[in-house]
Design a protein around this nucleic acid. Sequence first.
DNA 1: TCTCTAACAGGTCAATTAACCTGTTTTATA
DNA 2: TATAAAACAGGTTAATTGACCTGTTAGAGA
Lengths: 206, 206
Amino acid sequence: MAIGGRTNDPAGMRRKIIDASFALMSRDGYAASSMHDLRDASNVSSGAFAHHFPSKKALGLCVIREGIARAVADAWITPVSKATSAPAGIRDAFSAIVAELERNGSVSGCPLNNLAVELSSHDPELRQEMDAIFESWRAAIAGKLRDDLDAGLASDLDPQRAAMFVVAVYSGAMAMAKASQTTAPLLDSLSELINYFRTLYRPDAI
Amino acid sequence: MAIGGRTNDPAGMRRKIIDASFALMSRDGYAASSMHDLRDASNVSSGAFAHHFPSKKALGLCVIREGIARAVADAWITPVSKATSAPAGIRDAFSAIVAELERNGSVSGCPLNNLAVELSSHDPELRQEMDAIFESWRAAIAGKLRDDLDAGLASDLDPQRAAMFVVAVYSGAMAMAKASQTTAPLLDSLSELINYFRTLYRPDAI
DNA sequence: TCTCTAACAGGTCAATTAACCTGTTTTATA
DNA sequence: TATAAAACAGGTTAATTGACCTGTTAGAGA
């Protein structure tokens, strides 16, 4: 045994497991992804798997803290903060996600929303972790909205409430997109969300 | 055995199982509710349970078609159709749900959204069934919006897109409410949703 | 060079799961 | 009333699950 030898690479091994587990859990859900499935998808031995993650919950926690947090940052926080305005950033995020969905043909939903809905009732610790990601997501949008207010692009808008609204619209639309296996809910909802912003922003600022 | 005798009541037995299963599945999810749990919650024998529902999927299908469809009708379709206007009906539905959540202390989420997010990727048949309920939900709201248009309460609004928007806002807000175990996402989102309608409706009509 | 710890390998185990099976009782129908 | 079919009772089972266990090897520090 051990014919192929072995290269100790704890960080790489760990990352490999988290990435594969994030992909599998995002697609199939937490409960539906067995430790055996996760191990197979990760392409590591049982021993290595158990060494890095002694329990499924420990793995789930890391998937949330690292995998999901990164996904939200990449899909939302970065685009919104780089955009010329909050509505523009929101439109960018929606459009990129819709394009990605139409590229691969099926809708597996928002990773954060999927796990939050599945796990919030079961584990308070995981729930709190996911709530924190929702919070940072909303904070990024609220921050951009505040920038727009300061720049005089908009007025009479409550950044926190509006940010909550935006994330709610997206999460709900994505849930319906998953149920219908269609991007229509996302497109329709984005359209109305832009209409909502049109009443709050200067006509030329949107 | 059979000391207490037995009263054949197929419809009642079936309803008992569906009601208990709807409650359990809505709270804990589909996968987390084992056949054993569902049987215990239903308070029936294994034999009766297996007789009415030969498989878990068969039970899930009936829970969706009967339990969830009724829940959506009671919480949304009926209030909206009875209201004086669509925004008023939406506000009524939100308020009643928030009041109910604050009464029992914890947020278990929207039954339809919970199951749709959990099961859409796993079973096309269940997915289609849930999509149909989303569809009827949106149709009820769109119908009311059309009534408002006809009555001259509003103008320049696309009933289908707006209905999609409303359901998305609610579903997403409820998901965040579940993640935070707070009603704040629902209250904030309702507030912004009303702002959205304010721009579409006559000032005195809302 | 020696040693100790973490990294890894591969297999095992009790518990849980969904489905099924055999037997009994009620009720509709002829 | 005779009888077939449905309604119910209670237990069984093969497969899957998450956790664990014993051994082996690489690499850092003394």
